[in-house]
Each structure stands twice: as structure tokens, then as C-alpha cells.
Design a protein around this nucleic acid. Structure first.
Length: 283
DNA sequence: GACCAGGTGCCAG
DNA sequence: CTGGCACATGGT
């Protein structure tokens, strides 16, 4: 056995307005692993092993350009924060979550993971992700967590194989989407050039992908920072802000108007703040 | 056991 | 357009 990678002297990177732990724990990715204060997270087939002390990011493993890209370290956080709404609740979310970044996830693993997310709690999504990875994903050197299984790998499985990973009724959707991609009917990379509304439409063509999950993929993988996924929490928050009920689409339109050019960022801060504090606007 | 979870698809009115 | 319902699973 060789010594743990964290024993080696890390490279360092200055990362202001960045909170590594918060970014990995706020419900964007579900497979990150914390051990002795050091985070491990796999993106595609690369392992990042990272620690943080104040503004200094310690890199034990992983290529720096890929880490910068994955954690979107170039996002203009000053402008993002200036764009936050001025109401007390949004400002409390900002104060409580400062440093949280929208991560740029690989397209397929983001799409697939969020297909499995519907009507599941964060802890369950993590379980399914880890099971799929360990059973069907490729090993990544030095990592206890495997890569997410390729679309072609998932497409080679049966629905009952996927149900055995705890997917329930989502198995059919994940399988159907994996097949469309492995057959080459859609190329996720080549959709990048589409404007957001057309990209959303294209994503909604996959089985199991509706507006909410499409918006998650737009925000967490395609970097469309204006996209607002309306889940049960955002619905509660937006409803409380508007003081009346409305359809998810209306609440999304309200959020995009109210939250501004970085609405997806605001949404993520509100989501995490509500979930961890259990409070809603006006309470 | 009831209740709920980062919803979607389909159906009726 | 809207509301209602089925769809699996696991944790409080």
C-alpha cells in the first residue's frame, strides 16, 4: 500500500469567493466523498482530490485547468452577488451560502443523474449514483468512486438491472435516454450551440426529462446561469414571495424576472438556504 | 403506517 | 391552459 495522496505536498490555487465543501454539498453533485477534511470528486474519468484553507485551494490530485473549469472559478462572483434581490430572505441566503459555486458538470452524468432524481431525496440520489457507478462505471485510478457509466453501457443493460440499483420507475426513463444517445440520435455536446430555449426543448425530448430536470441540466452542465429549476422547495419559496399559488411555469417566470441575470445562482442559494434552515420567506 | 422527496407523462375537462 | 393521478423507493 502506498501512502495516502493527501500526504504529498499539494499544489495551491487562490480561490476567492469559493467554498469547496458548500459547492459539493448543496445538491448539485451527489457522489463527492469527504475523508479527513479532504474532498474527492470524480468528473468524467478524472479524480480531483482537494482541500481548502481560507482562500487557498489545495490540490492533491487533478489538472488545474480542469479544476478551474469544473468549479467555474472564473465566474464573476462580485457581479453575481450584486445582482441578488435586496429582500431579507435572498440576502440571508447569500450571507449563509457565500462561496457556493454552480459547478460545470459533464453533460451526460448530469443529465443521467437528474433523470434519477425525480421524487427522491438528496440522500437517495446519492445512493443511486454510487450504486450505478460501482456496478457499471469504469474504475478511476486512486478513487473509491467509479466514473459514471457511459450512455452506451447503460443502454446495454435491462430495465430490471437498473431497478436493482434502486431507480424504481425512473429505470425506464434512464434506459430510454441512454439508448437515444448511444444510438447517436442526439449528441449532447453538439447541442451546446443552441440558445437556451431551444436547448431546453431538445432536452425535454428525452424520456423522463421535463422542464425542471432540463433546467437543472441547463444550469449545472451547460452553464446557462439564467435557468431556474422549480422543484418543491423553489415552488414554496416563490409562492411565499408572491403570496399566492401558481403553476410551476408561472413560478419559474416569476423567478427569472425577480432574480435577475444570474437567476440560476440565486435559485441555488435559496434552495440550499431553505433546505438547511427549514425557513421560508416571511417567517 | 402515514407522509414526503431537486417530477414526468398522460388524461380529462 | 389547469387539475388529478400513477409511478417505486427509502427515510423519518
Amino acid at each position: 500500500m502506498s501512502e495516502p495522496v493527501s500526504m504529498h505536498r499539494p499544489r495551491t490555487l487562490t480561490a476567492p469567493d469559493f467554498d469547496l465543501a458548500l459547492s459539493l454539498q448543496c445538491g448539485q453533485v451527489f457522489h463527492a466523498d469527504l475523508k479527513d477534511g479532504i474532498w474527492s470528486v470524480v468528473a468524467d474519468r478524472e479524480l480531483f482530490v482537494l482541500g481548502q484553507k481560507a482562500d487557498r485551494l489545495e490540490i492533491f490530485r487533478g489538472a488545474i485547468p480542469n479544476i478551474r473549469r469544473y468549479f467555474n472559478l472564473d465566474h464573476p462572483m462580485t457581479s453575481v452577488y450584486e445582482s441578488f434581490p435586496s429582500d431579507a430572505y435572498s440576502q440571508a441566503a447569500l450571507a449563509g451560502c457565500r462561496g457556493m459555486r454552480i459547478i460545470r458538470q459533464p453533460l451526460w452524468e448530469c443529465l443521467a443523474t437528474f433523470i434519477t432524481s425525480s421524487m427522491k431525496q438528496v440522500a437517495h440520489i446519492r445512493q443511486m449514483s454510487l450504486t450505478l457507478r460501482s456496478k457499471y462505471g469504469q474504475a478511476v485510478e486512486g478513487s473509491s468512486v467509479n466514473a459514471y457509466p457511459e450512455a452506451t453501457r447503460i443502454a446495454s443493460l435491462s430495465e430490471s438491472d437498473l431497478r436493482a440499483c434502486g431507480l424504481g420507475f425512473r429505470a425506464k426513463s434512464l434506459l430510454g435516454t441512454a439508448r437515444e444517445i448511444s444510438e447517436g440520435r442526439v449528441n449532447l455536446e453538439s447541442l451546446q450551440i443552441l440558445p437556451t430555449s431551444e436547448l431546453r426543448e431538445a432536452l425535454c425530448c428525452f424520456p423522463g426529462v421535463g422542464r425542471k430536470i432540463a433546467n437543472c441540466v441547463l444550469l449545472f452542465a451547460y452553464g446557462r446561469l439564467e435557468a431556474v429549476p422549480v422543484d418543491v422547495w423553489i415552488a414554496r419559496i416563490a409562492t411565499a414571495m408572491r403570496r399566492r399559488k401558481a403553476s410551476p411555469l408561472k413560478l419559474e417566470e416569476f423567478s427569472v424576472r425577480r432574480f435577475g441575470p444570474y437567476a440560476g445562482y440565486v435559485q441555488q442559494y435559496l434552495f440550499h438556504h431553505a433546505r438547511t434552515t427549514g425557513t421560508l420567506p416571511g417567517q
